[in-house]
Design a protein around this nucleic acid. Structure first.
Lengths: 197, 197, 197, 197
DNA sequence: TATGAATGAGAGTTCATTCAT
DNA sequence: AATGAATGAACTCTCATTCAT
């Protein structure tokens, strides 16, 4: 008798977040109605507004979750005890794998960020900034120590790499010719090769 | 006494396209109402529907215009009479310059493509594909002739580069520390360095 | 086949205003839905929002109309060529008659003014103020010339009289024992008697 | 650390009534949500519904309290051992002072009575009626004994006076040029002067 | 070639009330 | 005596599109 629902037994807020994430990724934020979300989560509109102040809050929660996760992983790799070359390669490859594992989040990220209100946008940008800067510090460290070529400003190198990471949600499909690990290795390799002195 | 309008003296369809391009880039496709577009263009709704069948047609026209332009430029650089290294570098740098010159178009492209109906989407993807393949052919040519490293599949290299091009609309701001030409040189350089054998 | 509608042949904006006035008076502003208004006027919601920016605009229009009417009438009586006693009595009686003729407007006025947004409220209060002051000037003129007792500040006298006018919508019902003219004469008489030196 | 609340130490029902009275007066009955009331009172929704059957019951309680109070005071003044002129003046002035002391109640009264369900409305009207009639009896007594002019029906005189009393919440502000006692004296004076034979 | 009034479906959000605990 | 998650209906307002002129 029961209809298929997003994570049937899970707590309501999680069910809502899961449904929203999938629908935002599939259809875009504006094209997804609150009605669709609550139907997919198997709850009523009232329940949604009991837990989230607005549809926009839901979007922000999606962001917050993925940002937290990626920052933690980057910190772990960046602070590891290994040569700088190894640490950058690991971090660069890991963000690819993690992004492929959460392609929906990534798709939402790069298409829907401008749907956030100015203040929320600002907050998300701030956290993005921290992430960007930790990554840049790795590149600068290698440039300072002569391991990486200083030919390109580190900022630009970061944007070069993350451009390709964001782009993944446009072309990568699970089941394609390359596994996520292969893609990650190739992209990290391209980055490291570009940085050779 | 007249209010400022998009390309005041230009023909109505151009005025509408210019207004739509700006507004789609600023606010997103769904957030831009037909009313806003006609007001910005200084015409009435009836006029818009006289020239364009729907709001979506307007979006497709924006795409068609930029795709045509970029394909022409790529063809010119790719078919030039120069060593492969030079031709790839020129093409890679040119797409950066052209994208920065049309940041609005780029922003629309990577945020709003999924707003097109399936059939129009298909058509746009097809043209994108042609573009991608011409670029890939350049890389494969260099790999075949030993000028570029064959370590990474050419497809992936194309996506690596175009990821960073798409990403430009996220971070590049005119008036920043780097001119468009400097950015273009740096990004083309990164690509070529990554392809060194 | 046609349903009963507010002023069937009249232009749409008038039909909407008439329907809104009646419903606001009967049920209050907040209790009246836009849906009810458009149904009573025999149009669709879209039509309402084509002519009025919001439900609140409709309310403001009701105010603006009645304020304009009453100010015109007061000016006519106050500027007439007659002894001050006569002019005050005429003005005082006329506002009673006019109010009874538009009991709906009056009811809305004294119950729903606080539903207007601060800026609109301010504007309405300003026009009310002008009306109040023209009336007060009449009383002060009589007090200065010794025709009326100066025992009570003119401001207070104005509020005394208008309190009873506002109150009409609470108790007066057409078809009661007193005609509107009789009520008007009595209330004007009370005012004049209170002002006897 | 606790937030400021309505009558912090008082019993819950009183806290709720105080919060509701203030909010209804400030924003109107319909614009005040149950959530706002319970937050202002520092309790939860469940507590409100434990003591009051509905939001409307809360409104009726506000009415009942003020009606009880005013009836008691009127009875005291009306039944005093003093000349009719004195008793009317005292009662007329007292209702002004009491109203000014409870301007919130008055504002609610004259704006929100139509929000009560028909049956509750009826009951409130009945109590109002009793009050009105006690007051009218005073005027009739004076008219019968020749102390007051019989020119105006006593009913109308009552409405004349109470119109101005209701109107107080519209214009009177504590801290203005007239104290509540001065306003009361002036308004009682106007009534008595209007009734002079 | 262009107008703008009108449509009608659907959007996000609010809210009084209930009920298992 | 009190909680707070959940309901479900109603709310105001928006919008792409049509069509008589």
């Amino acid at each position: 008798m029961a209809k298929a629902m997003e994570g049937d037994g899970a707590p309501v807020p999680q069910r809502l977040l899961a449904a929203a994430t999938r629908l935002f990724a599939e259809q875009g934020y504006d094209r997804t109605s609150v009605q669709e979300i609550v139907e997919a989560a198997g709850v009523t509109k009232g329940a949604l507004y009991h837990y989230f102040g607005s549809k926009e809050d839901l979007l922000q929660e999606v962001y917050a979750r993925v940002l937290r996760l990626q920052q933690e992983r980057l910190d772990a790799y960046a602070n590891a005890d290994a040569p700088i070359e190894q640490r950058l390669r690991d971090a660069a490859a890991d963000v690819v794998v993690t992004t492929i594992d959460n392609l929906d989040d990534a798709a939402i990220f790069f298409r829907s960020m401008h749907h956030l209100s100015p203040e929320k946008n600002k907050q998300v940008r701030l956290e993005r900034r921290r992430y960007h800067e930790r990554f840049r510090a790795l590149i600068e460290e290698g440039q300072r120590t002569g391991v990486f070529s200083p030919a390109t400003p580190a900022d630009l190198v970061v944007d070069y790499h993350f451009g390709s990471v964001h782009h993944l949600s446009t072309w990568y499909r699970p089941g394609g010719p390359l596994s996520r690990q292969e893609v990650a290795d190739h992209l990290a390799d391209l980055l490291l090769r570009a940085l050779r002195p």
